[in-house]
Amino acid sequence: MSLTLALVVAGLVAGGVFLVLQRELTRIVLGFALLGHGANLLLLLAGGRAGRAAFIEGDGPTGGEVDPLPQALALTSIVITFAATTLLLALAYRSWEQRGSDEVEDDLEDRRIARLRDETDADLEELTDVLADLEGDTGPGDGVADVHGELRP
């Protein structure tokens, strides 16, 4: 195994991760492109040392051919990564068209929840007020009966 190749993989992955963590969509897409390269090289690396291309020249293998399977896998993954990255790019483009900016937005509902609310279930509050009276927290007093009367004229 080649240390250089392993270092290239690590470098591509690190660069890709750094870009993916940014807020601009285009950089994220580019980051995935780098990550994809890293992953494909890694597959190849898993096949072992460099060698002769896997072509059968005569009647059979002569030895020294490089492991063909990781290449086939990498071929498939290149295509898939390409398709997905392009789709992401189209999405980024659409997003830019709509918003005039290519920064990822935060989720609005999440932000709303994150701003701590004080209001709570309105129904519950009403019931509690009524029942607390019944329990006597406010003593025998306020009109309760009509609230509970299910038969209103």
């Binding site: 807020r23 990822v104 935060d106 989720d107 609005l108 999440d110 932000r111 929840i113 994150a114 701590l116």
Partner: peptide, 14 residues
Amino acid sequence: ADRVTGVVQSGSLP
């Protein structure tokens, strides 16, 4: 629930 969700669910992709 609000507090926990507010923390874990930051809404930010990065």
